[in-house]
Simulated assay, not measured.
Amino acid sequence: MSANNKRVFYVKYLAHEVYADILRARPDVRLDRLENESAEEIASPILAAAHAYQIGAARDELARHFHADADLLARAPNLLIVSSNGAGYDPVDVEACTAAGVLVVNQSGGNAHSVAEHALGMMLTLSKRILEADRALRREANVNRNALIGTEAQGRTIGIVGLGHVGRRIAELCRGLLGMKVLAYDPYLSAAEMAARGAEKVELDDLLRRSDYVSINCPLTRESRGMIGAREFASMQPHAYFITTARGFIHDEAALVEALRERRIAGAGIDVWSKEPPPPDHPLLQFDNVLASPHTAGVTREARANMGRIAAEQMLEALDGKRPARVVNPEVWPGYAGRFERTFGFAPG
């Protein structure tokens, strides 16, 4: 195999430098970096030659013309693989990639521990009213502690929407540490599969009605976009907390504002937003019972290194003709396999 005959590029940043270290150890792989501001005369030949694109998962950090959509695919006719830095793939038009015979993979599970710990931290901080107490102490004298009475999570019910890598880990933590009852809504898993992951399978409406905490942990898809709106917030119990570490646009931010303003729920922990990061004057940031973070649930040193390593190993597996473990669009395989064989002279396994 000739040197650098497999071309991979990325824009702006990688999950971790271990990704570059692993790929650069392979003499048959060339790794190119572009910036959001890269001039067309620099970007165009790299896109035209690329076989793979390692794409950042944060949609608002990536220039629009570098989103993996039909326009970019037209500029990258040799592209075979799009790999997200994380579990999410917001800047990827999966349907356009599938139509073009491009395989899409993600790094699901690589940051599951970090995201699950973040969700649990939000849950406990909210129910113990730690954030409200902290803010009160910083702006008031003689704070009345009896006005800040919290609740225990022990023995309560958590409803998890999406019982994948993160949702399963949240279920383990809540059940094991706090003896909580776990309900879950996931249309892609059977009741037996969910029971094996420690949860009772229920419909979404039932989950919202019965849970003391609702945690959103599903990917953003056509089906999940706007899934949690005014009707869903109205179905929750007044003492319940809403927590999301999934993706913006799954919940309706305006509807959440109204639910909090009318005290239909007790509070919210929000890590993901329709615009990231949200502006300081965002309506949700004006509530003392809203705990906010700028999409940092999966951003830990351990998770970043793990994601970089997984992404590099999966990329090399794909370029070597193996079937990756985390394929987002498996239906593309026949078309992708044909294009791969025409490019490299052998069929992928």
Rank of each mutant, 00 (worst) to 15 (best):
343 T>I: 04
331 E>P: 04
249 F>R: 14
148 L>Y: 15
208 L>K: 11
29 V>L: 00
197 R>P: 08
216 I>P: 01
320 D>P: 06
257 V>A: 07
251 H>G: 03
253 E>L: 07
323 R>E: 10
68 A>Y: 06
283 P>I: 12
237 Q>I: 09
303 A>R: 07
53 Y>C: 02
220 L>T: 12
253 E>H: 09
177 L>W: 15
323 R>P: 03
43 A>N: 11
81 I>S: 03
170 I>D: 01
70 A>L: 07
185 Y>S: 07
332 V>L: 01
160 I>K: 00
17 E>G: 03
29 V>Q: 00
8 V>L: 01
257 V>C: 12
219 P>W: 07
136 A>N: 09
171 A>P: 01
221 T>C: 04
16 H>Q: 04
81 I>A: 07
327 V>R: 01
157 T>A: 01
121 G>L: 00
275 K>Y: 13
97 C>H: 03
344 F>E: 09
227 M>I: 10
208 L>P: 04
271 D>L: 01
160 I>N: 02
263 R>F: 07
283 P>R: 08
23 L>Q: 07
336 Y>W: 06
9 F>Y: 11
313 E>S: 06
94 V>G: 01
255 A>P: 12
58 A>R: 15
30 R>D: 00
57 A>P: 08
183 L>K: 09
272 V>K: 00
132 E>L: 05
294 P>C: 13
340 F>V: 11
149 I>R: 13
292 A>E: 11
240 A>N: 15
238 P>W: 07
231 R>L: 12
319 L>Q: 08
202 V>Q: 11
165 H>F: 05
157 T>Q: 03
289 N>I: 08
97 C>V: 09
2 S>I: 02
92 V>L: 02
290 V>K: 04
264 R>C: 15
4 N>I: 00
228 I>P: 10
49 A>F: 05
160 I>W: 02
82 V>M: 02
233 F>C: 11
107 Q>M: 15
309 R>F: 02
332 V>N: 00
290 V>C: 14
168 R>Y: 06
222 R>Y: 06
51 H>K: 06
221 T>Q: 03
237 Q>V: 14
189 L>P: 08
259 A>Q: 14
262 E>A: 15
197 R>K: 15
202 V>W: 05
19 Y>N: 13
255 A>W: 14
341 E>I: 10
305 A>I: 05
67 H>C: 02
151 T>K: 15
66 F>D: 12
48 A>F: 05
99 A>V: 08
97 C>Q: 10
46 I>N: 00
118 H>T: 10
216 I>L: 02
338 G>P: 06
91 P>W: 01
269 G>I: 10
304 R>D: 14
267 G>K: 09
96 A>Y: 13
123 M>S: 07
86 G>M: 12
142 N>E: 12
202 V>T: 13
2 S>P: 07
72 L>C: 08
157 T>K: 01
268 A>K: 05
76 A>F: 03
99 A>E: 15
131 L>C: 05
240 A>L: 13
180 M>N: 09
76 A>V: 12
52 A>T: 04
145 R>P: 07
158 I>T: 14
245 T>Q: 01
160 I>L: 01
236 M>P: 10
